[in-house]
Design a protein around this nucleic acid. Structure first.
Length: 431
DNA sequence: TCTGGGGTCCTAGGACCC
DNA sequence: TCTGGGGTCCTAGGACCC
């Protein structure tokens, strides 16, 4: 029987920002989405103020000023680096890890029940070590299924039936657990989102306990096999395994809202070329080729009073490729086809689709001279990636990506790259 | 003035096959 | 008078996650 521990960082992005600036201790901190659009992370102080997740920043700016909230633009380089450090510390506990998201990992811990203090003691040690070594707070939920481990983590975070950030369902008396699940809203369950919550609510199912006790076949008939699996997991039947190997992406998306409205085709071309370049790096990192490219552009959907236009078109490539030049040429061809002058564009994006492993490439029938045959493309892209890997992303790039890039997103309150750039290293002064 | 980005999985329905 | 049964593949749309 497996036992899962879910380790989840508290207020992760906000905690990363606070970590390197001691002055922020006790200060309410939010982190904003790209373009400084929405609130995507809140420190404990901000949550206490009742500011909801996902709210547009401009709507609460005045309120934030009154409460002295400090806002940061997203610094993904910092968060990704701290995330890697957390995973490294966790790797010291067990090698059976699934890195589920930037701030969460599942661990398979059935072998550690003899640990001093049991699995809860094990969880406590994880918490302590991450706090000591990285200065970050995490909560640990332990249970026989992943879905229950998520809920246990929720209890640990909310202080429900848990001591100091660890909650272990495996040692809890069944009546206790039932009682606890009866106090948690069904929408907290992993896999139950807004829509399903509303439908369950209409059926009179409001708590986790009520969902757990539903007939699984009924749930399957009225919802789907996915929710049926959730019900079984809530009963302690493990249906979801630890996924230690990260499968290759099936599609790669790259898109951004612009810092200001974009009217010119030339600017859109630069943006699309940049997004392709970014996606192509990911593509080559997983050693895949794209068999199709999609490009889309759209005006600002939040401004229905201005003329609206949006269009996206997918082209299959004659031969799958991971060459930035090839992908860019196709993407620009699509863009020129869908572009309509006179609109203020708010966002553009590209998708790399029909991905296949490079080793199972299908050559084009009528293109014996093609880039695939000579290996020069792969060598060039290899050099491109290694130079950018060493000197920074975008140091070497196609001219199509532009120089001025007036369309780039806003990042007005970006913190330094504390752990990722030399100039950003924190300084410690001894008095 | 101002509203993120990047993914996965499942299902239903249509086209097509023998 | 009367028109089957069983299957695959693809796509679009909808749900979910962080």
């Amino acid at each position: 029987m497996p036992v899962f521990a879910l380790v989840d960082c508290n207020n992760f992005y906000a905690s990363c920002e606070k970590l390197f600036d001691p002055k922020l201790k006790g200060t309410p901190v939010v982190v904003l989405s790209n373009n400084d659009g929405c609130v995507v992370a809140r420190s404990a102080e901000v949550k206490a103020l009742g500011i909801p997740m996902g709210v547009p920043w401009f709507q609460i700016r005045e309120q934030a000023r009154r409460h002295g909230i400090v806002a940061f633009s997203s610094n993904y380089a910092l968060y990704a680096d701290m995330s890697n450090r957390v995973v490294e510390v966790l790797s010291g506990f067990t090698s059976n890890i699934e890195v589920y998201s930037i701030d969460e990992s599942f661990l398979e811990v059935s072998g550690f029940s003899n640990w001093p203090g049991g699995l809860a003691g094990y969880g406590e040690e994880i918490r302590q070590r991450i706090a000591d070594w990285l200065g970050l707070a995490v909560c640990v939920g332990i249970a026989p299924t992943k879905t229950l481990a998520k809920l246990a983590n929720h209890c640990a975070k909310k202080g429900l039936a848990a001591t100091a950030g660890v909650c272990d369902f495996t040692t809890m008396a069944p009546e206790m657990l039932t009682c606890l699940l009866g106090r948690i809203e069904v929408g907290e369950v992993w896999g139950v989102g807004r829509k399903i919550s509303a439908r369950l609510d209409a059926m009179g199912i409001k708590t986790v306990r009520e969902l757990r006790d539903m007939n699984a076949e009924t749930i399957r008939a009225s919802f789907s096999v996915v929710l049926e699996r959730t019900v079984r997991e809530l009963r302690g039947v493990s249906c979801l395994a630890l996924e230690e190997l990260v499968p290759d992406r099936q599609q790669i998306m790259s898109s951004r809202s612009f810092g200001t409205l974009v009217y010119d085709l030339a600017d859109l071309e630069e943006a699309v070329a940049s997004y392709i370049a970014k996606g192509a790096v990911k593509l080559r990192t997983q050693d895949s080729l794209a068999g199709a490219v999609q490009v889309y552009i759209r005006t600002n959907i939040f401004k229905p009073e201005v003329p609206q236009y949006q269009r996206g078109v997918t082209v299959p490539l004659p031969e799958a490729s991971a060459d930035t030049r090839v992908l860019t040429a196709w993407a620009l061809k699509v863009l020129r086809r869908i572009y309509r002058p006179g609109f203020g564009y708010h966002k553009a994006g590209v998708m790399l689709l029909n991905l296949v492993p490079r080793t199972s490439r299908q050559f084009a029938l009528f293109d014996a001279q093609g880039s695939a045959m000579d290996g020069r493309s792969e060598r060039l892209m290899g050099v491109l990636d290694s130079i950018n890997g060493r000197y920074g992303r975008g140091v070497l790039r196609l001219a199509a990506e532009g120089v001025d890039r007036s369309w780039q997103m806003r990042r007005g309150n970006l913190s330094p790259g504390y752990t990722t750039t030399w100039a950003g290293l924190p300084r410690v002064r001894a008095n």
